[in-house]
Design a protein around this nucleic acid. Structure first.
Lengths: 169, 169
DNA sequence: TAGAAATGGTTGAACTGTCAAGTAGCGCAT
DNA sequence: ATGCGCTACTTGACAGTTCAACCATTTCTA
């Protein structure tokens, strides 16, 4: 029995780490979502997209680039930006250079919504996450995140939904 | 203006770590989901619940206890178990001692489904996660997971959905 | 300079998750 | 014992996500 905790597959350390990681994957998103939803009527993904856009106020950002930075799949992104546009927090324009490309840009209203939401959100993140971690652990977390997301693994580094060739080109 | 990456709220280290953690929260679940869905027609949550139940083949497990172990909210759990029951992978019985309590138990079919799914899934987890981490990083990950989930924080340790008192009793 | 393949983005259908409200059973106080 | 409150779980309504198929545009290739 104990299908996933021993055997030749994952050693003790790994399977324990796995359980905790899965716990975080299940628990953290609803918790983050909750605060923003209650207090600002924004989803966590909405917030992250706007935060991302707020770092490029002038130029705007291509859809795909948002996806790469926020690690979201395209359809999800489309719907989020559509929603944010309806709310007046974001504009979309077709790039003149490449007319397939859509460029999203945050509006003043979006920016002020974000500025209004940020303190509460960051506070919540601090209390939920960083208050429980030592600086060393924060550094370790950063390192682990890099190891996984910057590994070049096609599944994790985005494009996942179309990369299926087992051995590559 | 870099709403979430500097200022008095999160220092550089923290906000970088935060970005990577968020990346994992967005990316990992779809990736894990995908493999199981394609190859076994199971959701990741389905799999975790069954894996959990497979560790207590004899007695069965109370709904709430599953939630505590797999870190899932109750409504989600109810629907998953309902689905698994329809598929014949799980049975539910009302506890005779306390008739509010529902006890879920994995069936032989559920067990064999799990055993069939496990190799591919574990393989995928290994390739996606553990192949990119050193043993030291795995240990660090475990420690971070513990720090967050076992912190006693009501939001993270479940019950989150009813704890709203800002300062506590 | 066609035509084929690839890229960027959107959309429809099905599913899953969340919140809030609801039912049922237990337990303690009067 | 009757009523109040708590616990365990379920359900309805809604919003969000995913996969797959789609259209439009660009780029490669012959």
């Amino acid at each position: 029995m104990d299908i996933m905790t021993n055997g030749t597959w994952l050693n003790d350390q790994e399977s324990q780490a796995w359980k905790y990681l899965v716990g975080l994957l299940f628990r953290l998103p609803p918790v983050l979502e909750g605060q923003l939803q209650r207090e600002e009527d924004l989803s966590f993904a909405d917030y992250m997209v706007m935060a991302m856009l707020s770092e490029n106020t002038n130029e705007g950002v291509r859809m795909t680039d948002i996806g790469g930075l926020v690690k979201m799949a395209q359809p999800r992104l489309t719907r989020i930006v559509t929603k944010l546009e309806k709310l007046g927090f974001v504009t979309r324009t077709n790039s003149p250079e490449d007319r397939r490309v859509v460029i999203a840009q945050i509006t003043p209203q979006g920016l002020s919504k974000l500025e209004q939401a940020a303190p509460g959100h960051v506070d919540h993140v601090r209390r939920t996450v960083f208050d429980h971690l030592t600086p060393q652990q924060v550094e370790n977390l950063l390192e682990i995140g890099q190891a996984l997301l910057d590994s070049g693994d096609p599944e994790l580094s985005m494009q996942s939904h179309c990369a299926n060739s087992p051995v590559a080109p």
